[in-house]
Each structure stands twice: as C-alpha cells, then as structure tokens.
C-alpha cells in the first residue's frame, strides 16, 4: 500500500533525525567539556571537536529537511506554523533579553543557551498545540 511507504519513510526519517540530533548534542558536549576535562586545552583536539560538531549539525539540518519532506501536507503545515512561532519568539525574546543585558537591567551576561531553550520550548509547545488544534 502507498501509505505503508509513507509510514515507513516517515519512521525511517524520524529515526535518522533522532540519531543525528543525538550525535550533534553529544559532539556539543564533547566540544564544550573536552578541552578542560579530557584533552587539557590541546588546541588541535578542540578544533577537531568543533569541526565535528558543525559537521554533525549540518547532517542534522539535512535530516530535518528530509523528515519534513516525508510528512504529509497537514503535518508540514503544523511544523511550519510551529517554526514560524519559534522564530518570532526567538527573535523578539532574544533581542529583548539582549537589551536587558546591554542596559544592565539584569546583573549577568545574556547567555545564548537561554535563547536556545526559549526557542526549543516554544517550538515544542507550538507543535503540541498545532497537533491538538487539527485533531
């Protein structure tokens, strides 16, 4: 049946995305903690770890494109809406957060990790809400 191909392809692409995302996160942890904890600030190792992280990131982006292409049109619309909301919240929230830092309203420096968490949580919430809305 045609849909067995659809489901099989979607499942395969979901797994590929999960694997590349895990590889990217693991390589990010390696590039972050490796210089201090594993190879004692050895620069070539650090460069290799960062290049590896960027390569895994590129593979993750390609896997994400394949994943979205394998979805049907309604699932794609849910993803598009979620990504649009996450991008908007990320830009607006990120710039507001940056302003809080530059005007010294917050005591510490603005950390990129907070922005990544904000985008991630917004995307997750928007995807769940989208799934519920079209149910």
């Amino acid at each position: 049946m045609e849909n067995q191909n659809y489901n099989t392809q979607l499942r395969r692409n979901t797994w590929q995305l999960a694997i590349w995302t895990f590889a990217w996160v693991a390589s990010m942890a390696l590039a972050t903690f490796g210089p201090n904890l594993i190879w004692q600030e050895n620069m070539p190792f650090t460069i290799v770890a960062i290049v590896l992280n960027a390569a895994f990131g590129a593979a993750m982006i390609l896997a994400n494109i394949r994943y979205i292409k394998s979805m049907d049109e309604m699932q794609r619309r849910i993803q598009l809406e979620a990504m649009g909301i996450a991008l908007g919240v990320g830009v607006v929230g990120g710039l507001s957060y940056s302003l809080l830092d530059t005007t010294n309203i917050i005591s510490g420096d603005a950390e990129i990790s907070f922005l990544v968490i904000l985008i991630g949580l917004t995307y997750l919430a928007a995807t769940v809400i989208g799934q519920i809305r079209y149910r």
């Binding site: 049946m1 045609e2 849909n3 067995q4 191909n5 659809y6 049907d72 049109e73 309604m74 699932q75 799934q131 079209y134 149910r135």
Partner: peptide
Amino acid sequence: DALAVSRQT
C-alpha cells in the same frame, strides 16, 4: 492508506 497521508490528516 490509499491517499498516503496520516490518519490524523
């Protein structure tokens, strides 16, 4: 199945 979309769609 016949349309190659998800049941949710």
